[in-house]
Structures are given as C-alpha cells and as structure tokens.
C-alpha cells in the first residue's frame, strides 16, 4: 500500500550523466521492494505541470539520522526532470510510493542474470543484493549509449560474480548492445532466471533471447503514466494472461514488472485485434 509523503531533499549529486536524489520520506522505505517506483510531484504546489514523474526506487534506508530515505536516479529529459535537477537539500518534495508490483524473487538458490540499460540498472542493484543474501549467484550485464550513461558499475562489480559492460560508442566495455553479449553469458553461467530493466527495445531483445532458451525473465517496463496509482488507464500495454487471453494491463499497478514472454512486444502502442474488448471484436454490436 503506497503512502503520500511530504518529503525533504537530503542530497542531490551528479553520477555521470544522471542525478542521484535522496529524499527523507518517512514510512516509505519499509514498504519498498526492488522494482517498486515512486511518483514525484514537480514544479511546486502552483505548478502548471499537473502530473507526477515516475522513477524506479534505487536505494532505501529505513532509519537514519534523518528518518527513512528513498533514493532514485534520474536523467534530465524534459521540464519536470529539469526542475528536479535544480532541487537542493531541504527543499520539499511530495512523493507517492512505493508503487507498482516489484520483482518476484525465486524460492530457491538460483543463478540469476541481471540486465540493465542506462538508469535501468538502478532497481537491479538492490535486487542483486537481495538475491545474494538468499544465496543466489548473480551476473550483470550493463549497457548504455556511452560511459556516462552507465550506472552502478562499481556496485555491480562488488555484488556480482561477473559483469559485462557494453556501450553503443565503445567508450566503456564492449562496443555494442547488451543483446550482443547476453546469449553467450547465459550459456556460460547456465542462468536460471533473468531480470531486466531499461528501454523497451532492450527489454524486447532480452525477452527474445530468454524465450529461445526457455529461461524465464522478468522485465520492468516504462510506459507514459498520468497517475501512477491505477485510476486513469493511460499506462496500458498488451499482456497475455494465464488464460491465454490478451488484455490491456495498467503498467503502474499490474506492472511495471511483467514476465517478459507475456508482453506482446510487437503490439505495444497498438490495440491488437484479439485483445479482450477490442473495438474490432465488438464490431458486431
């Protein structure tokens, strides 16, 4: 169950191309699991930006000198994130969270591969720690456009058994994409499960690689959201249910974590004809 908290910025620092923001938000940390996200009000109470911005939760501390804190990693994309980047310690920030369904953890000690694209590695790092605590082997693949857009390389090295890095421009690690190195890594580590977070195209590629090997993968998607709490129906994508039927599911409450092979990647952004309640299916009425 999410809470709405009037928080206070504890710190904001640059991490490569990103900002890491820590906010004192009492009551949120203890509810948070890796994969949850937080929705942040931007622009102040009189803002002309009415909608909250969603960010994956990176780190939480239940208690500290300042009370519970929540940290997220963001890149400046448009007006809202530009405003956020100008916040300074002690500025007030209204947060709602934790939101969404987190990553599901394996019941057994498995070998897990975690694939992060850009800031998508943020929720994977606490997940990796949790998996390690449970005795799982963790291997990382981190990818980004360039070295400044890689996040969490050092943390990942510390936590994981192995780490592979790719950048589009070759400024760090191997030149290329995570999907170029993933198949070989999965075969080498005999991975049982894959967790991924990053751009939609990457999640699709990861899913395809996993499906062809019969490896279950969980992906955290990023869809445009107006409310983040399940009331507006803007954040939907076509997902196949246990009954084999496709429905337009809300990624803010039924996601953002989905089983990769349940998402109809080639139909994202459309209403497939066979979806439950599609206009075509109703043509007879």
């Amino acid at each position: 169950m999410p809470v709405q908290v009037q928080g206070e910025v504890l710190s904001i620092r640059r991490v490569g191309a990103y900002f890491a923001m820590t906010v004192v938000a009492p009551g949120m940390a203890e509810l948070t699991r890796p994969g949850h996200f937080v929705a942040v009000q931007v622009g102040g109470p009189e803002s002309s930006m009415l909608l909250r911005r969603a960010f994956a939760i990176y780190d939480v501390k239940e208690r500290g000198v300042y009370g519970g804190t929540v940290e997220f990693i963001f890149s400046v994309h448009g007006k809202g994130t530009a405003w956020l980047a100008r916040r300074r310690p002690q500025d007030k920030l209204d947060l709602v969270g934790p939101l969404g369904k987190p990553f599901r953890l394996p019941a057994e000690r498995v070998t897990a591969t975690l694939v992060g694209g850009g800031y998508g590695s943020a929720p994977l790092l606490p997940l990796a720690s949790l998996l390690r605590e449970r005795g799982c082997r963790v291997d990382f693949v981190l990818g980004a456009g360039d070295q400044h857009r890689l996040f969490g390389q050092l943390d990942a090295k510390r936590i994981a058994t192995s780490i592979e890095v790719t950048t589009d421009d070759g400024s760090s690690g191997r030149r290329g994409r995570v999907s170029d190195v993933l198949p070989e890594l999965l075969d080498r580590t005999q991975s049982d499960v894959v967790y991924a977070c990053g751009p939609m195209a990457m999640l699709r590629a990861v899913t395809e690689i996993c499906s062809s090997r019969g490896i279950p993968c969980q992906v955290a998607v990023e869809e445009s959201m107006a409310c983040g709490i399940g009331v507006c129906m803007t954040c939907v994508l076509p997902v196949i249910g246990d009954d084999g039927k496709t429905r337009m599911l809300r990624s803010c409450v039924e996601g953002p974590v989905f089983l990769g092979d349940r998402v109809r990647w080639s139909d994202v952004g459309t209403i497939p004809e066979d979806v439950v309640g599609s206009i075509t299916a109703q043509a007879g009425h």
Partner: peptide, 30 residues
C-alpha cells in the same frame, strides 16, 4: 459500456500547460 472494451492505442496522454490531453477510449470491463 455494455461489453468489455480495450480503449485506444497508446500514447494515451500528453501533459499540457496546466492541463492534459487524454485519449483513453473508455477502456473498461463492461
């Protein structure tokens, strides 16, 4: 509506100055 309905294709919203534009297409369970 009478029958379940999947609504319109995404993107379904755009933020505008002090407002937003939505095109949900009445998604609902019937």
């Amino acid at each position: 509506m009478l029958a379940p309905r999947s609504g319109r294709a995404t993107p379904r919203m755009a933020e505008t100055p002090s407002g937003m534009l939505n095109s949900i297409g009445l998604q609902g369970p019937g």
